[in-house]
């Protein structure tokens, strides 16, 4: 076994150890509570998860929620970047739109969900709420990235007459990329949680949030735990996949090290 394999093995073991510890804590708590309606055991949750998976709708429900939130995140990325470019390019746009950023950032998500329920179709509401969470973060991070472009390099680009396109590709994108990646890291988890919260409140057809809501209503606590477990797994998977993908691309282009 070489040093690298040893390191990987010890890391896996330590992660498994931590997981085992918390499962043990969970098991002991559920055993002491002794009510699967209040706190189901890991075994009850696993059985509930098995039942969910065996149901034909499970993957469809997970896929629809996943698709809805990923779509919301992607639209938000485009919108956030566009707003950042607009507000950094125009002082008037900045003066006009910046208060909106402050209002959105300081308003509780629940207030937006309740208000949006009155205005928007319930199937589109999770997408809207996801955007409300993601857009301001991407917007402010990308704007900060644009502001941080090296003034010396901008002067160099001016002297050597870089075209607008060359300025964007050779100067702005590489500078802004790490700021965008930081925004991705912090928004993906939030977007996922906000999207599911919106689904719980607006109960669209076929959604993880809707399933959570009904599990709570019908006191199916093991199912509630099982869905929560699915949410956590999907959240980690999306975040890791996305950040890994962007990080790989960034390091290949040498804009993220």
């Amino acid at each position: 076994m070489n040093a690298r394999t040893k390191k990987i093995a010890s890391r896996i073991l330590s992660v498994l150890g931590v997981i085992a510890f918390w499962i043990a804590v969970w098991f002991l708590l559920s055993w002491s509570v002794n009510s699967k309606f209040l706190l189901p055991s890991p075994k009850d949750t696993l059985i509930a998860l098995g039942e969910l998976i065996s149901d034909g709708e499970f993957f469809l429900i997970a896929a629809i929620t996943l698709g809805r939130i990923v779509l919301g995140v992607l639209i938000s990325f485009i919108l956030g970047i566009a707003l950042a470019v607009l507000t950094e390019a125009s002082k008037a746009a900045k003066a006009l739109l910046s208060p909106a950023l402050t209002v959105i950032k300081s308003t509780p998500v629940a207030s937006f969900i309740i208000l949006a329920l009155l205005w928007i179709d319930r199937d589109l509401l999770p997408l809207f709420i996801t955007s409300l969470i993601v857009v301001p973060i991407v917007w402010s991070n990308v704007a900060e990235g644009i502001r941080s472009v090296d003034k010396g390099l901008l002067q160099m680009a001016k002297v050597y007459r870089f075209s607008r396109l060359k300025r964007i590709t050779a100067l702005y994108i590489p500078t802004v990329a790490p700021y965008f990646l930081a925004a991705c890291k912090s928004t993906l988890g939030l977007a996922w949680k906000a999207g599911i919260s919106a689904e719980i409140l607006c109960t669209p057809e076929r959604a993880i949030g809707t399933e959570l809501y009904f599990s709570k209503t019908y006191l199916e606590t093991p199912a509630l735990f099982a869905w929560t477990f699915v949410i956590i797994l999907l959240s980690i998977a999306i975040e890791k996949l996305f950040v890994f993908g962007i990080g790989k691309l960034g390091s290949k282009l040498r804009v993220i090290r």
């Binding site: 090296d150 010396g152 390099l153 002067q155 160099m156 002297v159 050597y160 007459r161 050779a170 100067l171 590489p174 282009l253 040498r254 804009v255």
Partner: peptide
């Protein structure tokens, strides 16, 4: 038509 400038600092694009 064209002006070249060697600045005090190299001002190179770090990612190229």
């Amino acid at each position: 038509a064209k002006t070249a400038y060697v600045f005090q600092e190299p001002r190179l694009l770090p990612w190229k």
